[in-house]
């Protein structure tokens, strides 16, 4: 009862912090810029393709690729935003002393951490879902393309953000606010690159290189979830259109949907990393 109240109070506080800090403004500006740019790009595409937009497989392929590309931009913005929000909100507060008076209240530290995490999850996934949806609408309005599984795609995008911010929360219980943001975003980028390298390996038929991608996808499930999201955004015919041999090597198309096992692993990963963060935060001297 009291734990639920603590969690909700802290989650609401974290959301309020996010809405009052400059992060929100920066995110909003970047999002609008990206939406506008992609809207312009897609309308150019529609103009080039003429009236045959919906019938041409080529156009659907291009729309899929472009949509995935722009969504990657959004996931990057969300990653940067939440990682750099998670840092200040946890280690920043313990460093500045804000946490002293809060944690001296009759609350348990894991409840405090859960509240912070929930607030960040709500903020991060709220952002990707809204921005992603707006992007889908832009694409639909300009070229008439609507992704096959938009709900699943947006949910996976949100899950990717959750994974990354859980990592940022763990890091921020141990290291300084800036460093935790930088390391989290760095690891996010590294796994993405490892995923692309793995894809190259697949198209070259080199198992050792493929393993780079699969191992990194297990260690940090952001890239795996991202590939699942791409698969749900892109048109099923796009893969055939692209040519089966090279599609593995191409970073903005995904060849296979996510397996349930992988989703379960991602959930377990989040739970484990959160548990580590709670243990580390519990032991911390303020």
């Amino acid at each position: 009862m009291t734990i639920a109240r603590t969690v909700l109070t802290i989650a609401a506080l974290t959301l309020r912090e996010a809405s009052r800090r400059r992060v929100l403004l920066a995110l909003a500006v970047l999002t609008v810029v990206l939406l506008a740019l992609s809207g312009w790009g897609f309308s150019r595409l529609a103009a080039e393709a003429g009236d045959s937009t919906l019938t041409s497989g080529e156009a659907r392929l291009t729309a899929s690729i472009l949509l995935n590309l722009v969504m990657f931009g959004f996931s990057l913005i969300a990653a940067l935003g939440t990682a750099f929000l998670a840092g200040p909100t946890l280690s920043g507060e313990t460093e500045s002393g804000i946490a002293l008076s809060v944690l001296a209240r009759p609350i348990r530290r894991p409840a405090f951490l859960l509240g912070k995490w929930l607030g960040l999850v709500a903020f991060g996934s709220g952002f990707v879902v809204l921005a992603g949806l707006a992007q889908c609408v832009v694409v639909w309005a300009t070229v008439g393309y609507w992704p096959p599984e938009p709900a699943a795609a947006l949910a996976l995008l949100a899950a990717q953000t959750v994974v990354l911010l859980t990592l940022a929360v763990l890091l921020s219980t141990a290291i300084s606010p800036m460093a935790s943001g930088v390391v989290a975003v760095g690891l996010f980028g590294t796994t993405w690159v490892a995923g692309v390298v793995g894809g190259l390996g697949a198209s070259l038929g080199n198992d050792a290189i493929v393993r780079v991608g699969s191992v990194s996808r297990m260690l940090l499930p952001t890239d795996g979830l991202w590939r699942g999201a791409m698969h749900a955004f892109q048109d099923p015919s796009a893969l055939v259109q692209f040519g089966a041999a090279d599609v593995d090597a191409f970073p903005f198309l995904s060849t296979a949907p996510l397996t349930v096992t992988y989703l379960a692993w991602a959930a377990l990963w989040v739970a484990m990393v959160w548990g580590l963060a709670a243990a580390s935060f519990l032991r911390k001297d303020l």
Binding site: T2, L13, R16, E17, R20, R21, S96, G97, I98, L100, S101, A104, R105, P106, I107, R108
Partner: peptide, 20 residues
């Protein structure tokens, strides 16, 4: 934690949420 329900504390390093 309930032991602190009726405890008030002013830390030596006093900082409060600047956005509130």
């Amino acid at each position: 934690p309930a032991a602190r329900a009726r405890v008030g504390y002013l830390p030596e390093l006093f900082r409060y949420q600047p956005w509130l």
